[in-house]
Design a protein around this nucleic acid. Structure first.
Lengths: 250, 250
DNA sequence: TGCACAGCCTGACGTCGCGTCAGGGTCAAG
DNA sequence: CTTGACCCTGACGCGACGTCAGGCTGTGCA
C-alpha cells in the first residue's frame, strides 16, 4: 500500500507517516523504483501498535523502544495496552462522577471545596507507574485474574469497593492512633480483613503473597504515600501487621 | 493563594500557570506588591474548567473562547463536559473491546483484517461535533428556558425526574417487546406522555418540536445509544411513535 | 501520444504547550 | 542577617506534527 492509502485506513495524515519514517518509528518495508513508500501487512501491524500506544499518551521515542524490545512479544503489548485502557476507563469514570457531583452540588446551591474539585486531577503518573507495576506484576496469575474480574465491575461495584477500603483504612488508622500494636491479635485481624478484601474483589491472595505486598507498602513510595495520607505512620503499621498476620497463618 | 500552592493543588506545574497567565487564559485576579501572583477562589474555579477542557483535548485558545463567552453559563459548561466525557468513556470502551477482540483472535490463531483493526481509530472529531450541536440547539428559546428552570431544581427533583423518565422508558420497552405498533393509539399515548414530561420539567415542547426531537433520536448517535441501551430497537420505535403522535395532534 | 491532475517525494519553517535553565528579587525562620 | 524555599521575567528547546514550496510520478482520456 502507498502512504495515502495507509493514512486513510489508519485515520492519520500522510505527514504523520513521513514523520514516523524519519524518526525511525515506522519505516515502510519497501520503496518503489521512484522512491514511493510501500507498506506491508507487517507495517500496518506495527502502525496499529504505534497508534494504540500513542493514544495512551506514550512519547513516540518510548513507543519505538517498546516495540523494538525483542524480549516483548505481541501478546505482552496487547496485555499492557488492555490494562492501560482499563485504567483510563476508570479515570474517565471518575471524572464523569466528579462532574456529576459538581452539577448536583451546584443545583443544591452548595460549593465544593477546592480539594474536592481538583482531586480527580491529583495524580495519574500515566506511564512510569504502569511500566513498573507491569514489570513486577504484569505476568502473574494474580494480575490476570484481577483484570478478568474487574473488567466486569459496574460503577456501583467500584463505589462499594472504595467505600469498603476506606472503611478499613479508617479503622486501621484508629488502631494505630489508639496504640494497638500491629503484631497484636487485633492488628493482625485487621490485616486479615484486608487480605480477604483483596480475595473477594480482585484475586486469590494467599498470606505469603500478602506479606510480599506488605513489604511493598514501605518500600514503594507510592504505596507509602497512599497510607501516609490517611495517617502518618500507617504505612509502616500496616506493613508490619500484614506480615505478622502472614506469619501467624503460615 | 500563591502559584506554588495552586500548582500543587491542581496537579500542574508553576510554569503551566505562568503560561496560562501570559496567553491570557487564566490571569490571577491580583498581585502582591512584590509582583507575586495571587489566585482567588474564582481563579481556581476557572482553572478547574480549563483543566477539564484541556483534558478533553481542546486547544487552549478555544478553551479561552469558551470560557470567555458571556452567553455560556457555568452549568452549560458542566453539561458539555459531561457529554464529552461520556463520549470518551464510550470510545475507550470500544478500544478495550477492540483489544480484547484481537487478543482472542490471536489466541485462536486468526488474523484480523486491517479494516477491522483500525476501525476504532476511524474518526473522533472531538470538537467539530460539539460546535454543530451547539449551533443547532444552543441558541434556541427552549434551551434557554430549560437552563433557567433546571438551575433551580433540587436533588430530590432530579431523582424524581430520573425516576419518571426511567419508568416511561421501561413501559415503552415493554410495549416494543409486546409488539405494540409505535403508531398505534397506545404507542402514541406513550409518546404524548414523553412530551408532557418535557413540558413539565424542562421547556414548552409543542408537538412539532417533539417530532423534530424524534427524528434526532435516530439521526444522532448519542440519543440512539441511550435508547438502544434500554432495549434494542427502542430508538426507532420511540422516534416513530413521537412523530405519529405529533401528526395526530397537528 | 500528449497532457492534465491526483498523488508522491524531500526540505524547511511554523505552531502549540509547555520544560528547562539563567539571572535575580522576596520572605519567614532561625 | 543569613540561609533556603519560593517567586519573578526572559529566552531557548522540544515533541509531534501542520503547512507550504518546488519538483517528480502515474494514469485516465481526448
Amino acid at each position: 500500500m502507498n502512504v495515502g492509502e495507509v493514512a486513510a485506513l489508519a485515520g492519520v495524515t500522510v505527514r504523520t507517516l513521513h514523520h514516523y519514517d524519519r524518526i525511525g518509528l515506522l519505516s515502510p518495508s519497501g520503496r518503489t523504483a521512484a522512491g514511493y513508500r510501500r507498506y506491508s501487512a507487517a507495517d500496518l501491524d506495527r502502525l496499529h501498535q504505534v497508534l494504540l500506544y500513542r493514544e495512551l499518551g506514550f512519547p513516540l521515542e518510548e513507543v519505538a523502544a517498546l516495540l523494538d524490545d525483542p524480549s516483548a512479544d505481541p501478546a505482552a503489548h496487547l496485555r499492557r495496552q488492555h490494562r492501560l485502557l482499563r485504567d483510563r476507563l476508570e479515570r474517565t469514570r471518575a471524572m464523569v462522577a466528579a462532574v456529576e457531583k459538581e452539577m448536583e452540588a451546584r443545583q443544591m446551591g452548595i460549593a465544593l471545596t477546592p480539594e474536592e474539585r481538583f482531586e480527580v486531577f491529583g495524580e495519574h503518573d500515566p506511564e512510569r507507574y504502569e511500566a513498573e507495576v507491569q514489570e513486577r506484576w504484569g505476568d502473574t496469575d494474580a494480575y490476570r485474574e484481577s483484570s478478568r474480574r474487574t473488567a466486569a465491575y459496574t460503577k456501583e461495584d467500584w463505589v462499594r469497593i472504595k467505600a469498603e477500603g476506606e472503611d478499613l483504612n479508617g479503622r486501621m488508622a484508629r488502631a494505630l492512633r489508639d496504640g494497638v500494636a500491629p503484631d497484636s491479635a487485633p492488628g493482625m485481624d485487621l490485616a486479615e480483613e484486608a487480605r480477604q478484601q483483596i480475595c473477594r474483589w480482585f484475586y486469590d491472595c494467599p498470606p505469603e503473597m500478602h506479606a510480599a505486598l506488605g513489604r511493598m507498602y514501605v518500600e514503594d513510595e507510592r504505596f507509602t504515600a497512599t497510607y501516609e495520607a490517611v495517617a502518618p505512620g500507617l504505612a509502616q503499621w500496616v506493613s508490619t501487621a500484614v506480615q505478622a498476620n502472614a506469619a501467624r497463618q503460615g
